[in-house]
């Protein structure tokens, strides 16, 4: 288990600052990195939810207003699954 706290904090800052400014193209890659490096990277779905709250929900988009939240959960699930596959094969 990776417990590199400074790295985690750095990734969190990058992701949340990107979310505040709407830079999804920065938040997603760094979020994937965090989901891969750290177990139970809950910051990713939280960042996705904050992005939806700021730019998605309440704009009349319906379920699409939660796209980044759903996407973040899916990415987290894929990263967890890939880690299991890689661990079993190594």
């Amino acid at each position: 288990m990776n417990n590199n706290i400074p790295l985690r904090i750095t990734l969190d800052v990058i992701v949340f600052v990107s979310v505040i400014f709407g830079w999804w193209f920065i938040a997603i890659p760094f979020g994937i990195i965090g989901a891969w490096v750290f177990p139970k990277y809950a910051e990713l779905p939280i960042a996705g939810f904050i992005y939806d709250v700021l730019f998605g929900i309440g704009r009349g988009l319906g379920i699409l207003g939660y796209a980044y939240t759903i996407g973040a959960v899916i990415l987290l699930g894929i990263a967890a699954y890939m880690k299991i596959v890689v661990k079993n094969n190594s």
Partner: peptide
């Protein structure tokens, strides 16, 4: 909890997080 809040107070989270993010915009 988030689902119930969105259902009963749909503008709570947008208002809260927008207030946090606005100084940076």
């Amino acid at each position: 909890i988030i689902g119930l809040t969105q259902f009963f107070a749909p503008y709570f989270f947008p208002t809260f997080f927008t207030a946090l993010a606005r100084p940076f915009w």
